[in-house]
Design a binder for these strands. Structure first.
Length: 316
DNA sequence: AAGGGTCTCAACCGCAGCATA
DNA sequence: CTATGCTGCGGTTGAGACCCT
């Protein structure tokens, strides 16, 4: 009945990851692609459970992550989307390429919540904070600036699904703030909505690196197989360029590929081991799909779309 | 300079829904 | 159809960094 347990949880390490563990995990994934997380720790020689590996990769090691604080524009998008979706961080994150749900959640709790309270806005309801006691709930005052007047009540804090959310509506304020660029926001809203954990299963054979149309140039020192693979092992949402023109990654601090912007850590230099043979994967679990993934073609096709989105961000 | 308080964020926990045998 | 395992997600925690007195 059922499946094999993912891990026995006995003798597994917990707590902060060491550089050595990071190295093992990155090395393994760059060399072998992402297959079943359950099998990763065993194959990578890690005393961690697959869940922990997945989290570490998606929240910290993924090469396409942006680092640093959210920009004002990103913050605004988060606020608007939160007004629509509530605490559905993964959905919100899917609209912010290079950001993880965990990162957005943290930023919300540590920065945005305070900011909104300071502005007299209830971060839960996105309505003006009620003045002390004896106040009937749900007053009808107009919504504050930056909050969509038509934004429905965010779902209750519990994990209940909002009534309808097939298409995430573009925040009205964002739309209004961009009269001539509606299509760009629409594009944003229609962009492949990948949650940060929804990294497509990949195998090195699947990695497709755009060769024409000037892909983002890599720093000379990092133009190695590892870097290329690192750049390619990413969700389609990350194939955008953060620069407004051409396709160069010029803003280091905003680079979706932190290792590219700052140079790969030394330990990545001679990383990328020979990939596991399919039979090794087989030994562990299912064989990975070996045909080229159309996902990355789509990603590359939407390359310019994201360039436009970036322009939109900078116009806030 | 030291001690204490506050803040930040990586990582863990546990639940819900889905997949599979 | 049922039992069990897996994955994804949101909430929470706690160690380290930072700030203030």
């Amino acid at each position: 009945m059922g499946r094999q347990p993912c891990c026995d949880k006995v003798g597994l390490k917990k707590g902060p990851w060491t550089a050595e563990e990071d190295q093992k995990l990155v090395s393994f994934i760059l060399g072998n692609g992402q297959c079943c997380w359950r099998a990763v720790p065993k194959l990578a020689g890690l005393l961690r459970c697959g869940k922990s590996c997945r989290l570490r990769w998606t929240n910290y090691l993924r090469p396409d992550l942006k680092r640093g604080l959210l920009s004002d524009a990103e913050e605004k998008v988060v606020i608007d989307l939160h007004a629509q979706l509530g605490n559905r961080w993964s959905k919100i994150a899917s609209h912010l390429p290079g950001r993880t749900d965990n990162e957005i959640k943290n930023h919300w709790n540590t920065h945005i919540k305070k900011k909104l309270k300071k502005m007299g806005i209830d971060p839960l309801t996105h309505k003006p904070l009620l003045p002390p006691p004896q106040q009937p709930p749900q007053q009808q005052s107009p919504p504050p600036a930056g909050v969509s007047p038509e934004a429905p009540q965010p779902p209750p804090p519990e994990r209940t699904k909002p009534p309808e959310e097939k298409t995430v509506p573009v925040p009205a304020t964002a739309m209004e703030s961009n009269e001539h660029g509606d299509d760009e926001l629409l594009l944003l809203s229609k962009s492949p909505g990948f949650c940060t954990d929804e990294v497509p299963m990949m195998h090195p054979d699947e990695i497709m690196v755009p060769l024409n149309d000037q892909p983002p140039p890599l720093p000379a020192s990092t133009c190695c197989a590892a870097t290329t693979a690192a750049a390619a092992v990413s969700t389609p949402t990350t194939s955008y360029s953060t620069s407004g023109s051409s396709s160069c990654l010029t803003r280091d601090e905003d680079s979706p590929f932190p290792y590219m912007a700052t140079g790969l850590p030394e330990w990545l230099d001679d990383m990328v081991p020979p990939p596991l043979s399919p039979s090794t994967w087989h030994d562990c679990l299912l064989p990975p799909p070996l045909s080229p993934s159309p996902v990355y073609e789509d990603a590359f096709n939407s390359y310019h779309q994201f360039q436009r989105n970036d322009a939109l961000f900078s116009s806030y």
